[in-house]
Design a protein around this nucleic acid. Structure first.
Lengths: 351, 351
DNA sequence: GTGATTAGAGAAAACCTTTTCCCAACCAAG
DNA sequence: CTTGGTTGGGAAAAGGTTTTCTCTAATCAC
């Protein structure tokens, strides 16, 4: 009782063998005592447990993994250097796995095939139980070959191999949420400004936009495609609100559904510069719910959230069940988005 | 040559024992052949190598780690959920380590002590060779106790324990870069708008700002402290450019050095709304060089970059040398910032 | 032809834990 | 006193690799 009440100074970790020796039993008995296996006197079991506790024993995962052929480790591959999309996914995965004692190797492969191979090899050498691939867009494949790896693979927010299991956001559903929200608020001349035509999500969202308008019997303005930037938002406002267009629809829009939050920001700023009020004259909805942008616009931006953390959580849990040997249907699972309402759309007319 | 030209179908990985058996030697010889150890005929060595290659043999890292007492794995702890600062650091660390075959466990501990302990325990169980702690500000400690862990610990962009090794950005140096840049451009009435007084970096940068002004014999305006938001940038412009202040300095500023890029963005927008030109009437410099913000301002923002990737790289390399048993001086190492010049300051008068 | 090296390769221990099998002792029933 | 079952616990193998030590046969000097 002089000094050593602390759990473990731990220069080199204490092994099961030392615990067993200290408790006066064999390693086999010690192991069983600590794992609740085998048969022995309650007294023996307790004595061993107490000894382990006192010595600060922690089982060596490497030895366990070697034996169980399970490392309680998964690899996460991404090419999203800035983590704008990957980080929430990562966070969800980690949340889902930490309670089960599973750790995550994070590997940024950029868009470099060599780097990708390097990381995948390292993961396999380290005997990861599975791999999750994630990225910054769902219509591009990571620069790595993940087929026939011998471990389960899950794709999250990136393009999967055919026949694989993937989780992606339901972009069409998200777009519907936005447009239907406008509808419920009484907006009737709804425009859509989005990113480059080279992105699959641009088409998915645009199609959903058209579908909703058609269902409601509203006029469909052809979506304006450009880039993901604020500057494009500015420019699009010019196109939408300058005379040329009003010839077609007769009137200018009273709502703009934007393909991402940066475009939405540009749109809001441009509208203000023209003297148009948001949400008074025009409602605006963004996409991504990137907090740092959505809360900095004036007024704060209503935006579609892709629930990426939930997506990551699903991906993590599914991977785990795969690792556990349970079967799972291949295919692409679309997870619903949700609308985060702030102040850029106004209140319902009857509210 | 019918089907099996591919490297490895790898349902269960091929072991060294199988390679040895196939090549007709003992495992000992096989091991030595593949590692370039021991003595044997060149012919034998080559035959074993070729066999391993053909079978797609990859040594089991778990077994190697167990034996070498080195896992070639490090843990990265962060509480920066959005990764704005952690991700570049992480990227630098990973870059520095991947070539040496070291993988990184990423753990987000939020600000949750329980979660922190959980992750640290998991890391130690998995026998990481070392741990790097990183965060979102350098004057707050992570919610974990990293002393006496038995493995080397490095702090990067977070507050270290006393006596530990830490890498942080040289905020004072970064601020000097900004203010001296203004000076070289002929700006003489330089203001400083920064974040909350509760941040240590705010004081470090403010003091450097004062020092440079004093050195140059310029008037020192007391720094304006507020929040890290665009809104505060707007507000600060009011304070700076409304009559009240001009009584003191006689004139309004011709340059504003901002504590981060978001404030700078607010300042630029507010200046434009007042009809003041950037950089014509007023130059603006931000801090953080957050690309997505700095390139979206009009004009694009000159900003101080903290070189976080380089910081991560240094941290990674230092950790590795520590793991290798080399000694290292404890203490805080400040790494230089650099100024990324865009268009918000104008050109030199003689340019 | 003798003794001393050396080249080439294998046996076995070590790393740490889990699990299967086994043994000794004890007890009750026949 | 045997048979059979149970209880408490240990011995040993397994997992895959590295490394040290040992052994045999061949080469070399004399």
């Amino acid at each position: 009782m002089v000094s050593d009440a602390s759990p473990a100074p731990a220069k080199n970790p204490v092994t099961l063998r030392e615990v067993a020796a200290t408790a006066g039993v064999s390693v086999a008995t010690a192991s069983k005592a600590l794992n609740g296996q085998g048969r022995m006197t309650a007294e023996t079991r307790e004595r061993i447990r107490e000894t382990a506790q006192r010595l600060g024993f922690r089982p060596n995962s490497l030895a366990q993994s070697l034996l169980r052929r399970r490392s309680f480790t998964v690899g996460l591959l991404t090419n999203d250097t800035y983590g704008r999309f990957s980080l929430p996914v990562m966070s969800g995965i980690s949340d889902a796995l930490v309670d089960k004692g599973v750790s995550v190797f994070l590997c940024n492969v950029e868009d470099d095939q060599r780097l990708g191979q390097l990381h995948v090899d390292a993961m396999l050498d380290k005997r990861v139980d599975g791999i999750i691939a994630t990225g910054k867009r769902i219509d591009r494949h990571l620069p790595v070959d993940l087929s026939n790896l011998g471990v389960p693979v899950i794709y999250a927010f990136t393009q999967p191999d055919p026949g694989a299991i993937a989780f992606v956001s339901d972009d069409a559903g998200g777009a519907r949420l936005a447009v239907e929200h406008f509808w419920r608020l009484g907006r009737r001349r709804i425009a859509h400004v989005s990113g480059p035509a080279s992105f699959a999500v641009v088409h998915a969202r645009a199609q959903a936009y058209r579908d909703v308008l058609t269902e409601k019997g509203l006029p469909v303005m052809e979506p304006l495609l450009g880039s993901w930037s604020e500057a494009w938002g500015h420019e699009a406002v010019k196109t939408l609100f300058d005379g040329r267009l009003s010839k077609r629809g007769g009137e200018t829009p009273d709502a703009v559904f934007c393909g991402n939050d940066q475009i939405a920001r540009g749109v809001i700023d441009a509208l203000r510069e023209r003297g148009l009020g948001v949400p008074g004259d025009v409602g605006v909805i963004g996409f991504d719910n990137w907090q740092i942008v959505a809360e900095a616009t004036r007024p704060p931006l209503t935006s579609v959230d892709m629930n990426l953390a939930a997506l990551g959580r699903e991906a993590g849990l599914t991977l785990l069940s795969l690792v556990g040997g349970e079967p799972a249907e291949p295919g692409i699972r679309k997870l619903p988005c949700r609308l985060v309402v702030r102040q850029s759309c106004g209140r319902p007319p009857d509210g």
